[in-house]
Amino acid sequence: MAEPIVRYQDVHKSFGDVEVLKGIDLDIYPAEKVAIIGPSGSGKTTIIRMLMTLEEPTSGDIIVDGTNLWKMEKNGGLVEANEKHLRSVRGDIGMVFQHFNLFPHMTILENCMTAPIRVKGEDKQEVEEHSIQMLERVGLGDKIHNYPSQLSGGQKQRVAMARALVMRPKIMLFDEVTSALDPELVGEVLEVIRDIAKNDDMAMVLVTHEMDFALDIADKVLFLDEGVIAEQGTAADVIEHSQNERLQEFLSRFRG
């Protein structure tokens, strides 16, 4: 098997006195689809937020494509990463948020175009074509000049995915992307994720409560419980063969 594109090594994270993650070891391989499931408050979101550099680990290492994300070499030793280092590493990572976080002062198209132009210095014409392509792909080709406030929740989330795709990430993170949506809008968003999973060769990490969906598309499922990875394996392994009582109890709540 190829080298992992992301490797967590004994990663701990505390907020104040509360230790949320108690030693995470995890490998994510290129093009692998990973689903993280588990009860709320188990630290699922924190795992991917640390990879996106939104949260700094308390201890441990996260290696992205061979480079230590949160530490950099200086005078022969490892020191805390500065912004320049973080930017050089996180360029390959994209993220979609629970609350969309679209930029309300920009049109849909501008939401997609700003970063490739400003951050990657790509050609405006090409970025525009690429953005429109991605917006069409998520089914919003007719809305490119609308503002986020004019869209439904499901449409906003689809824009957020197009915006992340335009950056051509190697790793895409999905943070409970359907939790803030009305039930009837969940389907359209899941369809887009399924499409990405099927047709793009990027690695994907999904933190989700959509259990059936997660088990359906994931190559690897992690069950996170009380700050540790309590179980991991293929969907079949985890569901059918796991002896973990907490996992069985957790799963039974989703399939009445």
Partner: peptide
């Protein structure tokens, strides 16, 4: 909202 800054970080803005 902090989410705005987070989204910008996710797009690798300085």
């Amino acid at each position: 909202a902090p989410g705005q800054s987070e989204a910008a970080t996710a797009l690798n803005m300085s």
